[in-house]
């Protein structure tokens, strides 16, 4: 049997490389501009809160950085298929490549710069604006907001299979709907009464695990009145898919009116609630009988 895998003669690669670089630069300029100016404004989690806006900006930056890399890979693939396709029946192996020190240094430097700049940007988002970037930071948050008004405390309680919300500043009233005032920093204290849940309000840019016996704190500052969808992002049993609700961001005046109504409407339940705590022990553990 004769071998069809003999190395081909090494062609000069310079014209191809120059052509590839030119195409890549042009496509990248177009692609990055499209990502930043056309796609970027529509990227989740949009701009409903300071945290969401920061996350959206990070997403735009990530997509803008990834675009030239993606285009380079696709372009090399397509160009190779077109330019270096083996014509005829014989299968001929390519020329072995050894060395390439400049190329290796280049990709190490470029990838290091990308990763370090992303780390800097992510850290700035975490400790910038309202602080905390909307993620749960556990019971002792490192990134704590400093402002003229203290954060409004709202407790988020997960239970198979519903969310309830407690407002310690308003007599510890508990509600089935969450409403928060626009323009004020909110401290969400997320906990659970049974299994792990995850409080996910994508429009707010908030996602925090709800863990029994734990107080997971996330900060958010909604920018304008509106509504936001809440879902459980942790598979938690039979009705996990139904564990959703809609929250409201109200003007400060509308929020004052809303919370007063909740205090009255839930008075009977409030009298039976345990004193406000950052978390609760899930009792009873066993059914009676």
């Amino acid at each position: 049997m004769t071998s069809n895998l003999a190395p081909a003669a090494a062609p000069s690669g310079e014209p191809h490389i120059r052509r590839l670089i030119v195409i890549w630069v042009v496509l990248s300029a177009i692609g990055v501009a499209l990502v930043v100016f056309a796609l970027g404004p529509h990227m989740p989690p949009w701009t409903f809160s300071d945290e969401a806006r920061d996350q959206r900006n990070i997403n735009i930056m990530l997509a803008a950085l990834a675009t030239p890399v993606l285009l380079a890979v696709w372009m090399a693939l397509v160009y190779s298929i077109v330019a270096f396709r083996q014509r005829g029946v014989a299968i001929v192996d390519g020329t072995p490549i050894h060395g390439g020190g400049r190329l290796e240094v280049a990709w190490i430097v470029v990838t290091t710069l990308i990763v370090v700049s992303l780390a800097v940007a992510g850290t700035a988002a975490l400790f910038g604006t309202t602080k905390g970037a909307g993620g749960g930071q556990g019971p002792d948050p490192l990134a704590v907001p400093h402002g003229s008004l203290p954060p409004l405390q709202v407790q988020v309680i997960g239970q198979q299979w519903a969310w309830t919300f407690r407002y310690p500043a308003f007599g510890g009233v508990e509600t089935t709907q969450i409403a928060i005032p626009a323009g004020r920093v909110i401290a969400l204290h997320v906990t659970s009464l049974d299994v792990n849940h995850s409080f996910w309000a994508i429009r707010l840019g908030v996602k925090a695990d709800a863990i029994p016996g734990s107080d997971n704190v996330a900060f958010v500052r909604p920018r304008r009145p509106g509504s936001f969808r809440i879902r459980c992002a942790e598979l938690c049993g039979l009705w996990h898919g139904h564990m959703f609700t809609t929250g409201l961001v109200l003007t400060p005046a509308a929020f004052s009116s809303w919370i007063r109504r909740q205090v009255v409407a839930n008075a009977a339940a409030t009298r039976t609630l345990p004193p406000y705590s950052t978390h609760y022990f899930p009792e009873p553990l066993r059914r009676a009988g």
């Binding site: 309680i157 239970q159 009464l193 839930n266 339940a269 039976t272 009792e283 009873p284």
Partner: peptide, 16 residues
């Protein structure tokens, strides 16, 4: 016909 176990979240003790 069942005996009482008690609510884990007393919030649900109110009729809504």
């Amino acid at each position: 016909y069942d005996t009482a176990t008690g609510l884990r979240n007393p919030f649900w003790s109110q009729v809504r």
